[in-house]
Each structure stands twice: as structure tokens, then as C-alpha cells.
Write a protein that binds this DNA or RNA. Structure first.
Lengths: 214, 214, 214, 214
DNA sequence: AATGAATGAGAGTTCATTCAT
DNA sequence: AATGAATGAACTCTCATTCAT
């Protein structure tokens, strides 16, 4: 009745059957997107892959982009989950800066490696409706927040603006890792790449207190 | 009829008139892509904007992606040109590391700001055929090479692997600046952003000799 | 399963609850048709508005057109009722021809004004299955019959074929009033319009005896 | 480039070939509409009937309703033409009121009889976008104007407001004839129907001078 | 060399209707 | 008697590409 947000799922699936349908659609969409790219991921193909009629698909999603957003949301949530789990190990332990940075890089790297095709489609190829962008922002914000919390426990650091530093670290890691996974960087091996990024971020964080303060 | 590279322009424009037609098409494509996005940049629209019939467009380009590649090539060449020009000022002068890094950041930032719409379309929205990717690689390689040359003149540095360092610097700067121009980073002002990136890259380069050497 | 008139309601609603459900559906359909037009009055929307599941709707109506016919029947019955009530006032009184004609026009006009949206949808926009047409015929017949009865009491008239005259009067009034309410006629004010139609019908009736007789 | 009127034909057909294409489409649309009704007159069916690809159809018409409007415009123009031709005979001759009225009725009747299917679809079944309505208004206006001119030559008449009278005559004749052709009126024969309408309009016009003046 | 009318596969989306629950 | 998830044929419309002129 109300002219609803054009990218929000159409109805809450209340019954178990419909919940499964929605899951099947999102799952199928992720696969089709990863395998064929955005342009060839047609709604009919997604429905077929999900083992669901096209009508059912449109029962739950008002249009193609809404599916895209749902896929991205699920994917980003999984990513965040993975990284948080990886960082959580450090929670009790007093970690060195280098250890922390490397754990972050490794976690992000593994996740990107596991879903590189979907990553490419979702964050390079597909249109970025505001809803998707907002979702990315939120996830990166939460990731930065988690990193910030850890940074403040590292004895050797005295950051002037931990918030900004955390954001820049996350953005830099994300961006470089995305590039590395997608098309490599200057033929660097995986190990060398990690070393370089660790050096980059470590150097930044060690200097960040004085730099901004200067 | 003969099997030909499907993304290379169809004929060498030998005559002057042809050359102008090709230029007009590429120019028009760049404008249409920037203004309407990849999805709405139809070949008919491009031809119309170029003041050329759709038939003529296909005389010079075998398909839509070939136009895309041509636009990207031209755009990247202009970008490289701009950065090289900006860095060239430093050629005679013995520059400080910080000065060099900031000049690089400023040059890239200005260029991205000037063409942010086209950048977004070309590097986020549009499909990335191998030919385009190769082109990007080449440009980034040349940029890294230029940066490497400058790095070796900076007295304070003793890089173990200047080549890799230069590549990473270029990639990091590129990636962060692209993100900053497209959707900002954590509400950082332009000035603060430049400071942070300078700190990031400066710290890396100063530490790079020992880190890799360790 | 048995071949059944495809536009007749499916089951006699014998029980009270069923009767209420049917009424709710017809009422909802009338509203949805008036508010969104035939093309956007989907059966799902009607069921939802009626507070009934789509399954239940199809329990009582074999298809969409059957709902349409039911709405039209109810609407026409209400119209007839209104006009008959308005004319009934004249029953005891010996009315002048002009008074009778004006009362008819006013009654029809008011009714059309009250339900102009539904009128438009029902009689202009929607398909006219035979069942609907039959219904219209019947109502107009009864209306003509009522008018005929009144005409015969008007002293000043001596109609040769009161039946035909009554039908023509009703048809003309109906048609002109429908047009006037839907899109106006030559910028005539409501009052002027009534005057003109009264003149038209009055003139016809006064002349009808001799004209046909000639 | 400009966001054009969504119901205006897309391009002026300049070359002869395209002019023929447009004509074929409109002609085919008229036939398909008349034969299958609005709901089943799909754009693909129209294109196929016209012997033209669906792409070509959308080259010249931005959407389905634009075709409808084009059909209506052509049809109305033909109708107007026919009536004007029929009335023109009276131009030189000093006609009696009854003669004039009958000639109008006959002309309209013949035209409606010739295209009753299309009439039904165009004016009852199909949606009435404003563009179509404007077109109807214009034609009826011109028809009324022509009738008004003739009325003023009829010696026996002294109309107070010839403009309004002409409009009402045209509207009434139109409406009744449309009904008569579509579903008959009270089993009246064609001849009787013409007599009745002539009586109706004649009576009105003869009385119109004094009625309005009263 | 250039034109632009024509093509048609295939896209996203709707909605009357069915049927397992 | 009632539900509402599921269906899928059919729709309108787009656009990269071809080819007769």
C-alpha cells in the first residue's frame, strides 16, 4: 500500500517455507552473479537456479537490484563476521602491533580469496545503489571500530586520532587486498604482499601519533 | 570476416578525416559514459553525440567494448601525462621524500577530481575486458617506473626493492584517492586526507629498506 | 468441474458469514476499481482490501470479470434505486412535464456525480462481458419503464409510443450526463447543462406524439 | 535528448520508407485493436501484423499508448472528414432544419457503422490518455463549428446561443448513435432510430431560441 | 565512406489463477 | 472454509548490431 523503498525486500517471509525460498534466491543469486557476472545474471536465471518460479522471486524482491543488495548484505555480514572472529582471538592476549596488523591482513585476504568472483561483481561490476553503499559504509565502520578497539590496547602505540587511523587502515587494507586478489600487484607473491602491506600499515600506525600531532 | 582481435579498432585511420571521426566517437563516448553511466551509454547515443551515424561508428569499432577500451586508453594516457608532468618539476630539484610523496598525491588527486564521473564508470561500473585491464597495468607500470626513478634520487632513502616499493606506493595512492573522490573516507577533509596518505606512504618508504631486508 | 456460467458467482452464499465475505469483496472491488482503474485493480489487491485471502476470493468468484459484473450489478441497482426514489416523490402529485424531466435529470446527475470514478471505470475502461451488458440493459429497461409510467400521467402529453419515448429519454439523459460528469460539455455550467438537457428532452416529448404519428 | 512528450511519435519519418512503416503500423494497430480488443492488441501482434519488427515499432512510437493515440487521431480525422463532406453538400442549398439534422445523423451513423469495432475499442475499452481526450475534444469542436455554421443559415431558426446548441446537438447525436450502433436502443430499427433522433434534435433546435432566452 | 532504417533476442516485470497446507 | 506461497505465460520495451541504399 505505501510506496515502499524500491530496494527493500517485499515481504517478510513469515512461514518457514517462504524463508527457505528467500534464502534459496539469495544463495542462487550469489552463485549466478559470481559465475556469470552482473550483466548475465538475469532474474530468470537466478530464479531457475534457485529452483523457484520467476513469480516467486518477484514475490519477495521488487526488482533485480533489491536482490543485489540482499546478496551484498549477506556477503558483507559474512565478511565482517569472519574478520571479527579472526581478530577476536587477540582479545585476551596483549598483541604486538605487527601481530595485530598481520592478523587483520590475513583475515581479509582469506575472505577475499574465498569469494573473489562475487567480490568483483558486487564491488566493481554491478551498479551501486545507495542502499548498497550504505551497507558497505556500515560494515567498514564496524570493522574500523573493532580495529580501533584493538589498537588502543597495543602498548607501543599512542594514537592522536585512533578513529581516523583505524578507518584508514581498514580502507587501505581492503583496497590493496581487493586489488591483489583480483589482478595481483606487480607479481608479488602472497607472502611478500602480506609483508609489504604489514610494513605499510605498521609504519603508518607507529608514526600516526606524531604525524597528526605535528 | 577474418578472425580479428575483437577489441582492437577495426581499421587504422590513415586518412585525416577518419582520424577525426574516431576522435569524435571516443570523445563523445567519454562524455556519454560520464554523464549517463555505462548502462545508459548506448552505442546509438554515442554515435548521435559524436555527430556520426551508427553505421560509421561500427565502421571503426567492432563492438561496444572496443569503444570502452579506446576511451579508457585515452583517459589513462591523459592521467599518466598529467602525473608525469607534475612529477617532472621535481626532476632537476633534489626533493625531500615528503615533498615527492605529496606531489604525487596532489597530482593524482587533482586528476581524479577532474574526471571522477568517468573514473567511476570506467573502473567501477563497466565490465573489464582483458584489453582494458592490460591497459591499466601498463599505465600503472609506467607510473611506478617514474616514481621509482624519483625515489632513487631522494637522499634519505635506501630502498632494497625500489621497484616493488614504487608499485605499492602507486597502487595505494591510486586506490585510496579513488575511494576518497568517489565516496569520501570517514568524513576526512581533503587536507587531512592528503596528510594521512602522505604519512602512510612516507612511513612505508622510510621503513621499506629495513623491513624487506629483515 | 461442471461447465458453469463463467461469470456467475460460484456458490450461493447461504450462510451469513459467506454473505459477508462476498459483500466485502464486492465493496473492496468497487473501491479499488474507482481508485486505481481497471488495469491496476488486481485480484490480489482486491482481496487484500477486502481483508480476505486471494484463495477465498476465488472461492466465491470464478474469475476477475465475475467480480466486475458483481460490482456493476450492485452499482446499477443502487443507481436505479436512487432514481426510482427521486421519481417516486412525483407519484401522488400531478407533475408538469418540465418538473418531471428536471427531476429525472437531477437524480441521474447526482448519482453520476457521486460515483463518477467507478462509472468511468465500469462503463468506459473495463471490458464489457455480455453478462455486464445484459445487466445494463435490464436496469435501463426498468428505468425506462418507471419513466414511462410517469409520462402517461402528465396531462399535457399524448404520446403515440410512450415506451420508445421513455427509452430514448433515458438513454439520452444517461449518455449526456455521463459525458458531462466525465469531461464536461463545452464549458457549460452545471445549471446551464441541466437547462439544455431539459429543453432537449422536453422539446422531444412535447413533439413526440405528432412526430411519430405523422 | 529532451524528455519528450511520452505519447508523441518518436521521430518524424523523413524518408519514404519510414513513412510507409509508420503507416503500416498505424493501419495494423487499427485492425488488431478492432479485431482483438485493447487487452489483446499487444505491441508484438501489431508489429507482426504490420510486417515490421517490434524494434521498428518502438523506433517510431515510444510506447503502446502512443500507437493508440495515433490510431485515434487518424480515425477521428477520417470521421470528421466524412461528416464535413456529407454536410458540405448542403452548403449551397438552403436546407430545411429537418434536412440538415437528418443529414448529420445519417453521416454520423454511416461512419459509426463502418467502424463500429474500432469505435468500441477506442472510445470504450481503451485507456484515455489526455492526449487522446484532447484529440476528441478538438474533433468534436470542429464538428460543432461546422454544424453551427449551417444552423445559422437555416431560415426558420433564431438561436440565442448557436455555439452551445451546436455542441449539444453534436454530443447528443454522437452519444446516441454510438450506443445505437454498439448495442441497439430498445430494438428500434435503423429508420425509426433516425426518426427519433431527428425529432429530438429538431425539437431542441426549434425551441432553443426561446428556451435559453426565457 | 557513410547512412539510418530495420532487426530480434532477450531483458525485467506483472498478475490471474491454482493448490498444498 | 480459509490461507497465501507458488506458478509461468505473457507483457512492454531496449539496444547492440546489420545491411540495403
Amino acid at each position: 500500500m505505501s510506496p515502499q523503498d524500491p530496494l527493500k525486500p517485499r515481504k517478510r517471509p513469515v512461514q518457514r517455507r517462504s524463508r527457505e525460498t528467500v534464502d534459496a534466491i539469495v544463495e542462487a543469486a550469489a552463485r549466478v552473479l559470481a559465475e556469470r557476472g552482473y550483466a548475465h545474471a538475469t532474474t530468470n536465471r537466478i530464479a531457475e537456479t534457485a529452483g523457484v518460479s520467476i513469480g516467486s522471486l518477484y514475490e519477495y524482491f521488487p526488482n533485480k537490484d533489491a536482490i543485489l543488495v540482499a546478496v551484498a548484505e549477506r556477503h558483507l555480514a559474512q565478511m565482517l563476521d569472519g574478520v571479527e572472529r579472526a581478530l577476536a582471538v587477540a582479545d585476551g592476549v596483549v598483541d604486538s602491533l605487527d601481530g595485530l596488523v598481520r592478523r587483520l591482513i590475513e583475515a581479509l585476504l582469506e575472505i577475499h580469496e574465498r569469494s573473489s568472483d562475487l567480490d568483483r561483481v558486487l564491488f566493481s561490476e554491478a551498479p551501486h545503489p545507495p542502499a548498497l553503499h550504505a551497507c558497505v559504509l556500515q560494515i567498514e565502520g564496524r570493522l574500523a571500530h573493532a580495529v580501533e578497539g584493538l589498537l588502543q590496547r597495543v602498548a607501543e602505540l599512542e594514537l592522536r586520532d585512533a578513529d581516523t587511523a583505524a578507518h584508514l587502515v581498514v580502507q587501505t587494507a581492503e583496497a590493496l587486498i581487493h586489488r591483489f586478489v583480483q589482478h595481483g600487484i606487480h607479481d608479488l607473491s602472497r607472502g611478500d604482499f602480506v609483508d609489504e602491506v604489514a610494513a605499510l600499515l605498521g609504519g603508518y600506525l607507529r608514526g600516526a601519533g606524531s604525524t597528526l600531532g605535528a
